[in-house]
Computed example of a mutant assay.
Amino acid sequence: MHLQWTSWLTLAVLCMYIWNVIIVGRMRNVHKVPAPAMDGPPEFLRAMRVQANTVEQMVFFFPALWLCAIWSGDIPAALLGLVWLFGRIIYALAYLKDASKRSTGFLISSVAAIALMLGAVVGLSGVLK
């Protein structure tokens, strides 16, 4: 079983997470927020929240992605994962500018994650066979 598309998507998601971490580091530097402080100006707090929320979402996303890939196929899982990734990027860009604008990206990524989980359930239950 080759899961190359899901593997590539996983690497892309990890790159997106590294981007989040770099933004937090830049905000720490720009706003003079020394580690391990977790409080600072709104720009820093928004960057921290984007990074933290992304980690929180990855805990659900990665198992759902891989279970969907294994049980329902590489391409469907990778495509839904790509939707999740775009949702997270939209979420991050919006949240960094204005916290009240984060909902669209959050909704896109949440729906994609739930679809991945449902894809795993459908594949595992044998409904598609």
Score class of each variant (00 low, 15 high):
W5M: 13
W5V: 02
W5C: 06
W5Q: 09
S7F: 12
S7T: 14
S7Q: 11
S7V: 10
S7K: 07
L9P: 02
A12Y: 08
A12M: 14
V13W: 03
V13F: 08
C15S: 14
M16I: 12
M16Q: 13
Y17T: 13
Y17K: 10
Y17A: 13
I18A: 15
W19V: 12
W19Q: 08
W19H: 09
N20M: 12
V21A: 14
V21L: 15
G25L: 11
M27F: 05
R28W: 10
N29K: 14
N29D: 09
N29Q: 14
V33I: 14
V33Y: 06
V33Q: 06
P34R: 15
A35T: 11
A35C: 09
A35R: 13
P36A: 12
D39T: 15
G40D: 03
E43Q: 13
F44T: 05
F44Q: 03
L45S: 08
R46A: 15
R46I: 07
R46K: 15
M48Q: 14
R49F: 07
R49D: 08
R49G: 06
V50L: 11
V50Y: 05
Q51T: 06
A52T: 13
A52P: 01
T54F: 14
T54L: 09
T54K: 06
Q57Y: 11
M58N: 10
F62E: 04
P63M: 07
P63L: 07
A64H: 04
A64Y: 04
L65H: 02
W66K: 04
L67S: 04
L67A: 10
A69N: 02
I70H: 02
S72D: 01
S72E: 00
D74F: 02
I75R: 04
I75P: 02
P76N: 05
A77R: 02
L79A: 11
L80N: 02
L82E: 00
L82M: 08
V83G: 00
W84I: 00
L85N: 01
